[in-house]
Structure formats: structure tokens, C-alpha cells
């Protein structure tokens, strides 16, 4: 990973990394935020209450907590109460408003992101800051983050739906955007 990051540094050159003008970088961050704040991604990146959200076109204007008193307290995959895979199977439901599913390494996998990766309810600046910080991003350099979003099965799964549920760009494009953002100095908005 580190070697990969160094390679980027070498290719991109220090001038760009140290660029004072953060406007192009902020634009790139804006695109990343578009993905992270998309309901398909953000609904399960929730905070300490461990309650996934229902938001998105099928739920009207106001986001709300996942119905049915679902809670990831005690276990991110719901196992303490009702395991997510009771309803979220390997596939995305083809029925409107049906439960999205997920497959990772051949088995159904659906779980909340860790608390330190909370996106839902946070500002773009906060998400950016924690995305960059190793203590809240799984100890990853920028390059590793780019790698993560293009290879992690659960992330890739986000784009496996058609229709209005699909997040913008593609995993590959997002990876490139993250790389470019890193090369642009990985700036974060101030609010």
C-alpha cells in the first residue's frame, strides 16, 4: 500500500500535492460526497444508536429510521436481535421497495459500517475529515482508500442495482476520483 502511495507521489509530483489552491480538490471531494451521502451508501453508515436509516426516493422527502425497530446494537450484522440477512439476502429484490441484498465471498452479507465511519447525519466536512483520518478509515492512506472503494465487495455491491437506487458514477470512477482528490491534496470543505 505504502509503495503504491509513494508511486502516486512520484508520478504526481510534490508541487501538485502541496498545491495551495484547493478548488479542484474540493470539487473532487464534492463528487465523493455525492456517493457517500447517497441513500444506497449512507443508510447503513450510521452512528452510535446503530439504527439503519430509510431514505431515498422510495421513502419520500424525509429520511427516517429503518422501520420494524431494527437495531444493530451489539452486533453490526444485527445478530444480537434480528440478523440483517433474515430479510436482506444475496440479491437485490426486484420488487419496488423490496429489500436490497448483498453478497460477499459467496455468502449473503449485510451489515452496518463501523460507528467511526458514520456518514448519515454528518456534514460533508465531518465525513471528509474522518475519511482521511486513519483512526476512522480503517488505517488507510488515500491510495488504500482508492483501492478499498474499487475492490471491497460490499462497496462494489452498491452499484449492482439498476434504477433510481443506484449511486452516481461507478466504483472504478469513484476510485479514480479518490486518487485524483488525493493528488489534489485531499482537501476538505470547512463546513
Amino acid at each position: 500500500m505504502i509503495r503504491y502511495a509513494l508511486a502516486i507521489l512520484l508520478v504526481a509530483g510534490p508541487a501538485q500535492v502541496l498545491a495551495q489552491d484547493s478548488t479542484p480538490g474540493l470539487e473532487l471531494w464534492g463528487k465523493i460526497h455525492e456517493v457517500f451521502s447517497h441513500p444506497r451508501c449512507a443508510n447503513c453508515h450510521v452512528g452510535t444508536d446503530r439504527v439503519p436509516m430509510w431514505s431515498g426516493p422510495e421513502y419520500g422527502a424525509a429520511p427516517r429510521p429503518h422501520g420494524m425497530n431494527i437495531s444493530g446494537k451489539g452486533a453490526d450484522d444485527g445478530a444480537n436481535y434480528l440478523v440483517c440477512t433474515t430479510c436482506h439476502s444475496k440479491q437485490n429484490s426486484a420488487t419496488p421497495h423490496g429489500p436490497p441484498g448483498a453478497t460477499s465471498k459467496g455468502v449473503a452479507e449485510w451489515k452496518l459500517a463501523p460507528v467511526e465511519m458514520q456518514w448519515f447525519g454528518k456534514s460533508s466536512a465531518e465525513i471528509c475529515k474522518q475519511f482521511k483520518a486513519k483512526e476512522s478509515n480503517g488505517n488507510r492512506e488515500i491510495a488504500a482508500l482508492a483501492h478499498h472503494v474499487t475492490t471491497e465487495p460490499l462497496v462494489l455491491w452498491a452499484w449492482t442495482v439498476e434504477s433510481e437506487r443506484k449511486p452516481p458514477y461507478s466504483a472504478k470512477e469513484l476510485g479514480k476520483i479518490v486518487e485524483d482528490w488525493g493528488m489534489a491534496g485531499a482537501p476538505c470543505p470547512t463546513k
Binding site: 420494524m68 440477512t85 433474515t86 430479510c87 429484490s93 423490496g98
Partner: peptide
């Protein structure tokens, strides 16, 4: 759409919709 639970069965002893 897994919203009511009336279809719940077990597959290998785990409840699923």
C-alpha cells in the same frame, strides 16, 4: 418485500423471509 414476515421459514435452522 420482507415487510410483514408472514412468509418466514427456516433455511438450515435460520429464519428468513
Amino acid at each position: 418485500i420482507a415487510m410483514c414476515g408472514a412468509c418466514t421459514v427456516y433455511v438450515d435452522d435460520r429464519p428468513v423471509r
